[in-house]
Design a protein around this nucleic acid. Sequence first.
DNA 1: GGTTTTAATTGGAACGATCCAAATTTGTCA
DNA 2: TGACAAATTTGGATCGTTCCAATTAAAACC
Lengths: 349, 349
Amino acid sequence: MAKERVTVVEIAHAAGVSKSTVSLVLQGSPLVNETTRAKVSAVIRDLGYVYNRGAANLRQSNSKSKIIGIVVNDLTNSFFAELAVGVDMVVQSAGYVQFLSNSGENIDRQREVIASMREHGISGLIVSPARGTEAADLKPLVASGIPVVVVVRNVPGAKVSSLMSDNHAGVMAAVEHLVGIGHRRIAFLGGFADTAVFGERLEGYRDAMRKAGLEAADDLVIGSAPSRAGGVDAVTRALAIVDRPTAAVCFNDAVAFGVCDGLRAKRLEPGRDFAVVGFDDVIEAKTAVPALTTISVDPQGMGQRAAQLLLKQISAGKVDAEAIVASVRLVVRQSCGAGRLNDGKRIAS
Amino acid sequence: MAKERVTVVEIAHAAGVSKSTVSLVLQGSPLVNETTRAKVSAVIRDLGYVYNRGAANLRQSNSKSKIIGIVVNDLTNSFFAELAVGVDMVVQSAGYVQFLSNSGENIDRQREVIASMREHGISGLIVSPARGTEAADLKPLVASGIPVVVVVRNVPGAKVSSLMSDNHAGVMAAVEHLVGIGHRRIAFLGGFADTAVFGERLEGYRDAMRKAGLEAADDLVIGSAPSRAGGVDAVTRALAIVDRPTAAVCFNDAVAFGVCDGLRAKRLEPGRDFAVVGFDDVIEAKTAVPALTTISVDPQGMGQRAAQLLLKQISAGKVDAEAIVASVRLVVRQSCGAGRLNDGKRIAS
DNA sequence: GGTTTTAATTGGAACGATCCAAATTTGTCA
DNA sequence: TGACAAATTTGGATCGTTCCAATTAAAACC
C-alpha cells in the first residue's frame, strides 16, 4: 500500500537529465532552458513527485525551515483562536506553515512543545506565554538565534520582541466613558491578580478613578478566573456589597459575558440596570444581546502584526528586540447603557 | 548571534566516543553501557545540543516523521478550536506534534496547506473539510499511504476513515423532546442547505416530525449562515410567519445563540416564550443564560477520538477505512423551557 | 575557422542523523 | 590461561536534497 517516495533522481532518470537540473527546476532557477524545464515539470507532475523539505533544509546551511511555531496558553478562548488565525494568514501567504500548540496554561507542557518545535527546526516562534513563564524558558531559543515574539503577556527579562495591547490606556478609556455617562461606583471584575496583564488593567482602572476624583475602594475590585464562569462568580460577589456598584469594567470579554449572565440570574438587565464593559472585542461581542461595549484589540490583527514582526526578524537575520504596544480603542455598544443615555452611538443588533 | 548547530559528531568528539554511540544514547538504546550513557548525556546537556529530527527521519526508512497535520474549516468557531485542542492532547502525549492550519472554508487554501503538509512529511492527517471538498483532494494522500481521518463532514467517495456525530439521531431526539413537552409548530433553523451535515440533520427533523404525526411545512425550515448572525437572521424570518412556530431546533449552537439574541430583540424570552435547542454543546452552552438545551457532541472528545483513530492507523501501517458515527445525547437545560414544564432537570446557572 | 563569451548542464561532496555489519572489549567457564 | 560468548562500540554507507566547481553545448566575435 504505502508506496515509496519518488525522488529527484528518479525524476532525473525519467526525464533524461541530471538530478542537479531537476533541483534547479524545483527552485525555479533562471539557469535552466525553457524546454527542459517544461519537460522536467511534466515528469514531476506525472510521477506524482512530492518535494521533501526535510532533506532540503538539511542541506541548506542553517536550517531555514519555513516553519514557524506558535503556542498559545488557551486555544479554547476564542481570543487566542483568532490570534492564531491571524498568524496563520500572513505566515501562510509568506510560504511558511505553522506548528500550533496549546499549552493549556501548563508550563511544563509549554516547555515540551517548545523543545519539540526546536527539534523540528522552526525558524521563529510566536508565543502567548503560560502563566509563570520565565525568561529562562525562552533563553535557549534566543541563544541559538531563533527570533521569538511574545504576545499578549510579557515575559520580564527575556530579550525578545513583544506585542502587547495598551491595557492601561484601554481600561482608562472605559472608566472615563462610564464616568462620563454618570456612573460613580464602578467595579473592576475578573482576572487573576498575579498576572502582569491584570496589573496593567487594574492600574488603568485606579488611575482613571483617581483622575475622576472617585474612590477606588478595594472591595470594588474582585478577581476571578478569566472566564465566563468566573464572571458570573465575580458579579455575584459584587452585587452582595452593601453599596452596590452600578457599573463594571471587566477583565476581558469572557468575564463580561459571564457578568451579563450573572446579572440576568438576579433579574437585572445588563445595559439598563447595570453597565458592563469588556476587553478584547471578540467576535461575539458585536452580535450578543445586548451588544457588548468593549475595548477592541482585534486579535486577528494582532496575530497578523505578530507574524509580520516575526517574519521581518527572520529575514533580517538579526534579532533586535522591540516592544510594541498596540493601541486600543473603546467600542461603545449597548451593554454600557450609553446608547440610551447620550450620544446614540447605538449599533443595531 | 546565530550560533551554528551542535551535531552528534561534536558530542561524540567531546565525550570521546563515536557518533554511533551518541546516536544510540539519543534513542535510549539498551545496548549502551550505563557509565558511557551518563557521560554522553552530560555532554549533550552541557553543549546545549538539539536533536535534528529533519536529519533523523531522512534516514529513517519511510519518513516516520512524528508530525500529524490537522486542518479545520473555521478555527474561529469554538467547536473546531476545541476539536483541535482534543487532537493536540492525545497527539502530543504520543510524542507527535501537530501542524494546524485553518482553511477558512476556502478550498484552494485547503489544497495548499495539505500540499505543504505533505512536503513536510506528515505521517497522518485529520481534516474537517472545507465546503466543496472532493474525494480527489484527498486521493494523493491515501495513494501514498498516509492515513487520513475526516471529521465532522464526510467526503463522499474518499476511501478514508471518518468520524462523524450522529446528526440524524441527535435532531430526532431534540424534536421528540420538544413534542413531549407540548410543542406542535417546531422550526428547523440555520445552516447551509448544500452541506451533507445539513441534510442529515434536516432528515432527522423531518423523520421525527412525521413520526409524531406533525406537519413539517417547508416554511418551517429556514437556512442561514451557520453563525450567530445567521441565527438572528433565521429567527427573525421565522417569527414573520403567520402561524408562528413556538420552538426551534437549530443547526448548531452558534445559530441557537443567535436565535436567542433575535428573540430578545423581539422582547421574547428564550425558554419561556419560545423553546430553543442547539447542536454541538460548545463550552458556553452550559454557562449561557438561559443555559442552552443542546445535542452534545463533545468536540474535545471527538478530537481525541479522531487522533486515536489516526494514531492507530499510523502504527498499524495499513489504512483500512472505517466510518465511525459518534453517538450523541440530548442535554436538557433551560432554553427549551423543559425545566419549568416537567421533570425539573433544571441546571443551576 | 578558431577563439572567446555565454548559456545549460552535470557529477560529486555535503547536511546530520540512523543503520548495519564488523570490530573491540569484557565476562564466563572449563 | 585460553576459548567462547556476551556486551559494547564503531566506521562507513545511506536517506533526498542543495551547493559548488567543472564540463559541455551553443552563440558570438574577429
